[in-house]
Design a protein around this nucleic acid. Structure first.
Lengths: 86, 86
DNA sequence: TTCGATTGTAGAGAATACTCCGTGGTAGAA
DNA sequence: TTCTACCACGGAGTATTCTCTACAATCGAA
C-alpha cells in the first residue's frame, strides 16, 4: 500500500469522523478545497507541512495520518493465503 | 516545534543509529546527498513519499519519523516554568 | 422540478520540493 | 602535512506540489 493511499484513507476517515466537509476542513487548515479532494484521491504526495496542518485541525498527531492500517486478525480454515497487495 | 524539525531530528537520530552516512542513506533511498543534508537542517518540508522511502531504508514506519519527542517527565522544585518553545 | 450542499475534475500559474553541479571546512588516520 | 570521510552550503535547473477559477455530477430536501 502506497503511502499516499494510507494518508488518503486516514484523512478521509478522520475528516468524516469529525463531521467536516472538504470545504470546511480546507478553510480551517488554510488549504484549497480542490486540493483536499485531490489528496483523498491520491493525486499528490502531500508535504509534511500540510499533513501537520490537517492533523491539527482534525485533533490528531501528524504521525497518525501516516499510520498504516493494522492487519485485521486473519481468521481462516483452509483458505488461500492472501498477500497485502504491496 | 515545527514538523520539519521533528522530522529532521528523527531522521538524523535514526540514520546515525543505523550507522549510515548521509551519502549512504541517500544512495539507498535513491535521493540526492545534499538533499538529505538539507532535510536534516530543516531547509525543506519533505513530501510523504520521501519520508516513506527514508523510513524503509531505516527499517522504521513512516509515521515514526514524524513522531514528536515525548515530554521527558518534568522534575522541578521552584524553577521557572519552561515552555516547549512552540 | 428546483434548490443547496458536497464532491470530482480540468487547466493554468505560483510556489516549493528535489536533483545535480561545485566549493569549502572539520576531524581523524597515515 | 597529506589523505580520506563526512558534512554544510551555494546556484541553477527540473519536477511536483499547491492555489485559483470554473464547470459538472450527485444527493437529499423543499
Amino acid at each position: 500500500m502506497e503511502i499516499r493511499e494510507v494518508f488518503a484513507i486516514n484523512l478521509r476517515r478522520r475528516r468524516q469522523a469529525a463531521g467536516l466537509s472538504q470545504e470546511e476542513l480546507a478553510h480551517r487548515a488554510e488549504l484549497d478545497r480542490t486540493y483536499i479532494s485531490a489528496l483523498e484521491r491520491c493525486v499528490y504526495a502531500a508535504s509534511i507541512e500540510v499533513v501537520d496542518r490537517l492533523a491539527r485541525e482534525l485533533g490528531v498527531e501528524a504521525s497518525e495520518l501516516l499510520q498504516r492500517p493494522s492487519v485485521p486478525k486473519i481468521r481462516k480454515k483452509g483458505g488461500a493465503s492472501k498477500t497485502t497487495g504491496e
